[in-house]
Measured scan of single mutants.
Amino acid sequence: NRRVIAMPSVRKYAREKGVDIRLVQGTGKNGRVLKEDIDAWLAG
């Protein structure tokens, strides 16, 4: 149960899109989840 590193704005964006942020692979520094990662996850 790893802790997800993401800015609050990215967490909010994921919530609005209905994405469980824990399932998204972060590509930022130290595995940080970026807004682009959410978009990529939604695109498949």
Rank of each mutant, 00 (worst) to 15 (best):
R3Q: 13
N1Y: 03
D37Y: 00
V33I: 15
K35E: 07
R22I: 08
L34S: 09
D37E: 01
E36Q: 15
E16G: 10
L42V: 11
A14D: 00
L34T: 10
R11S: 04
S9G: 11
V24M: 07
A43N: 12
A6L: 02
P8F: 05
V24I: 12
V24G: 01
V33K: 03
D20I: 06
G44L: 14
V10A: 05
M7F: 15
G26Y: 03
D37C: 01
R32K: 08
V24H: 01
V10M: 03
V19G: 00
A6V: 05
G28T: 03
L23A: 11
I5W: 04
Q25H: 13
V19D: 00
R22P: 02
L23N: 10
L23Y: 13
A14H: 00
L23R: 13
G44H: 14
I21L: 09
A43Y: 12
A43I: 13
D20S: 07
V10K: 01
A40R: 15
A14R: 00
R3V: 15
G31R: 08
K12H: 07
K29T: 11
N30F: 14
R2M: 10
W41A: 06
I21R: 01
G44D: 15
A43T: 13
E36F: 12
G28R: 02
G18D: 09
N1V: 14
I5N: 08
R3D: 15
R15E: 06
A43F: 12
N1M: 04
D39S: 05
R2A: 07
G18F: 09
M7D: 15
N30K: 14
A43Q: 12
V19A: 05
K29L: 12
Q25I: 14
N1G: 14
R11M: 07
V33N: 00
A14L: 01
A6D: 02
A6M: 03
G18P: 00
R11F: 10
D20F: 06
R32T: 07
E36L: 15
A40H: 12
K29V: 10
E16M: 14
A40Y: 12
R22S: 10
R2V: 14
W41I: 06
A14I: 01
N30E: 10
N30D: 13
G26F: 03
D37P: 00
R22H: 11
P8S: 10
D20W: 07
A6E: 02
R3E: 15
K12G: 04
E36T: 15
G18Q: 10
D37R: 00
R32Y: 08
V19P: 00
D20N: 11
L23P: 02
M7N: 15
S9F: 10
G44E: 14
N1T: 12
D20P: 09
M7T: 15
L42W: 07
G26P: 10
K29Y: 12
I5S: 07
N1D: 15
A40Q: 13
D39Q: 07
A40D: 11
L34E: 10
T27Q: 06
D39G: 04
L34M: 12
G31H: 09
W41H: 09
G44T: 14
R2L: 14
A6N: 03
K29R: 13
G26S: 05
R15I: 11
N1Q: 12
V33E: 00
G28A: 06
A6R: 02
W41Q: 05
N30Y: 14
R2T: 15
R22N: 11
S9E: 11
G28C: 04
K17R: 12
V19F: 02
V33M: 03
V24R: 01
V24Y: 01
D39V: 08
R32S: 10
R11K: 09
I21Q: 01
V33S: 01
P8G: 09
D39F: 05
G18T: 05
M7K: 15
I5F: 05
T27M: 06
A43W: 12
G18I: 04
Y13Q: 03
M7Y: 15
P8D: 06
R2H: 15
G28F: 02
V4Q: 06
I21W: 07
V10Y: 01
V19N: 00
R32H: 08
G28N: 02
K35R: 13
K17A: 09
K35V: 08
L34N: 09
I38V: 13
V10W: 02
V4P: 12
R22L: 10
S9K: 15
R15A: 10
D37G: 01
I5P: 05
E36S: 15
I5K: 07
P8M: 09
Q25S: 13
R3P: 15
S9N: 11
L23S: 10
W41E: 04
V33C: 05
N1F: 03
R32E: 11
E36Y: 13
D20Y: 06
V10T: 07
G26M: 02
Q25N: 13
I5C: 08
P8Y: 07
R3S: 09
I5V: 12
L42P: 04
K17T: 09
R11Y: 07
G44A: 14
L23D: 09
L42C: 08
N30S: 12
Q25C: 11
D39T: 08
I5A: 05
R3A: 10
N1I: 14
V4H: 05
D20A: 06
V19L: 06
R11P: 01
A14Q: 00
N1H: 11
A14K: 00
M7I: 09
L23T: 10
G18K: 11
Y13S: 02
D20K: 06
V19S: 01
R2S: 10
V24T: 04
P8V: 08
G44S: 14
R11C: 08
G18M: 11
P8I: 10
L34D: 06
E36H: 14
L34V: 11
R32P: 01
L42F: 09
E16N: 11
G28I: 03
G26L: 02
I38T: 01
S9L: 10
Q25P: 14
W41M: 06
E36N: 13
K29I: 11
V19I: 10
A14F: 01
K29E: 10
S9P: 06
R22M: 11
Y13N: 02
I38F: 00
V10H: 02
V10L: 04
G28D: 04
E16V: 12
P8N: 10
T27E: 03
R11A: 04
G31P: 02
Y13H: 07
W41K: 05
I21V: 07
R2D: 15
A40N: 13
K12S: 06
N30V: 07
V24L: 09
K17V: 12
G26Q: 03
A40V: 12
E16F: 14
N30P: 02
R2N: 15
K17S: 10
L34Y: 10
I38Y: 00
L42T: 07
N1A: 12
A6H: 03
T27R: 08
K12Y: 08
G18C: 11
A14N: 00
N30A: 11
G31E: 06
L42G: 05
G26R: 03
A40K: 13
T27A: 04
R11H: 08
R32M: 12
L42K: 07
V4D: 04
A40G: 10
L23H: 10
V4Y: 04
K35N: 06
V10S: 03
V19T: 03
A43P: 06
L34W: 05
I21H: 03
E36K: 15
I5R: 08
Y13P: 00
R15V: 10
L34K: 11
R22W: 12
A14T: 02
A43V: 12
L23V: 13
G26K: 02
V33T: 07
I38N: 00
R11G: 02
W41G: 02
R32F: 07
G31M: 08
V33R: 02
D39R: 06
W41L: 06
R3N: 14
E36M: 15
G18E: 08
R32A: 11
V10D: 04
G28Q: 03
R15M: 10
A40T: 13
K17Q: 13
A43E: 12
R2G: 15
G44Y: 15
V4M: 04
E16D: 12
L34I: 11
R15L: 11
I5L: 07
K12A: 09
I21K: 00
L23W: 11
A43D: 12
A6K: 02
G44P: 09
A6P: 03
G18S: 10
K12E: 06
Y13D: 02
I38Q: 00
I38P: 00
I38L: 04
Q25T: 14
R15K: 13
G26E: 02
D20L: 07
N1P: 15
K35A: 08
G31Y: 08
R3C: 06
V19Q: 01
V33A: 03
R2Q: 13
I38C: 02
A40E: 11
V19C: 08
E16Q: 13
G44C: 08
V4R: 04
R32I: 06
E36R: 15
R3T: 13
W41D: 03
I38A: 01
D39E: 09
R2F: 05
Y13T: 02
G31K: 07
K17H: 13
R3H: 15
A40L: 13
D20H: 06
P8H: 11
N1W: 03
D37V: 00
K17E: 06
I5M: 04
V19E: 00
K12R: 14
K35I: 09
I5T: 07
A14Y: 01
K17P: 00
R22C: 10
W41N: 04
R15F: 12
G44Q: 14
